[in-house]
């Protein structure tokens, strides 16, 4: 007997998949933010050698398919280093690295958007390098970066769908399973697509709200 019909449990399954996708998206974004910003700071201080290495790695990660990076981490690393890598670990490593590379680019241009004269002025006032970074550059750079960052995050959310290929039970993988069981591709993939769409819209909306808050000090308040 074949169980070809949809059951109420399928909705739970879809939501579970969405939860896995979201959890991976949020965690890899946070890790990527930390790493990417650290790379940008390395470049800001012009740390010799390290800055060049970082630029090279970021360029390599940006210019290669995420799928290949995923295969390299999931199939390549275990064979090469003789370690065990679970699908979820491979997904976290790859997506974090990939996010970091793109966030690095945004962070670099955000830091550069703060005028040199401001940094010079801060230096004249006797602020330390850390204080300049923390009090002068960071707030302005954050307001500058949030727009491109939102665009990137909407993109990265969609990139998470690739991890289904190495067997992580995310939304796309659940869609695949439901598709194979029910043989109703249109309904299944429309539902999966709709869930991704709504999530992407939510991310874009949240980004817009956050941008408004960060830019509140420059907003027009009326006379």
């Amino acid at each position: 007997m074949r169980y070809g019909d949809f059951t109420p449990f399928d909705i739970v399954l879809l939501l579970q998949g969405l939860g896995v996708s979201l959890a991976l998206f949020v965690s890899t974004t946070l890790i990527g933010l930390v790493i990417g910003t650290a790379w940008a700071v390395i470049r800001f201080y012009r740390v010799p050698v390290l800055a060049q290495i970082v630029a090279f790695i970021a360029e390599l990660l940006k210019n290669s398919p995420v799928l290949v990076q995923l295969f390299l981490v999931f199939f390549g690393l275990p064979a090469f280093l003789k370690i065990n890598v679970t699908p979820t670990e491979a997904a976290v490593i790859t997506l974090s690295g990939n996010s970091a590379a793109f966030i690095y680019v945004i962070a670099v241009s955000a830091i550069e958007s703060v005028g040199r004269d401001q940094i010079e002025a801060a230096r004249v006032f006797g602020l330390t390098r850390w204080q300049i970074l923390r009090r002068v550059i960071a707030p302005q750079a954050a307001a500058f970066a949030i727009g491109p960052l939102t665009g990137l995050l909407v993109n990265q959310l969609q990139v998470t769908s690739l991890i289904s290929v190495i067997g992580v039970m995310d939304l796309t993988k659940v869609g695949n399973i439901l598709n194979l069981r029910t043989l109703k591709p249109f309904i299944v993939w429309t539902a999966v697509g709709a869930l991704y769409y709504l999530t992407a819209k939510l991310v874009a909306y949240a980004g817009g709200r956050f941008e408004k808050r960060l830019r509140a000090h420059t907003a027009w308040r009326g006379l």
């Binding site: 909407v154 959310l157 969609q158 990139v159 998470t160 769908s161 690739l162 289904s164 290929v165 796309t172 869609g175 695949n176 598709n179 109703k184 591709p185 249109f186 993939w189 429309t190 999966v192 697509g193 991704y196 769409y197 992407a200 819209k201």
Partner: peptide, 21 residues
């Protein structure tokens, strides 16, 4: 709006499994 906000792999599966249907 639709094709920018849905992952490519989902679109691909939609066409690949859906069109024969």
């Amino acid at each position: 709006d639709i094709f920018r906000n849905i992952p490519f792999i989902v679109q691909l599966f939609f066409f690949y499994f859906g069109l024969p249907e």
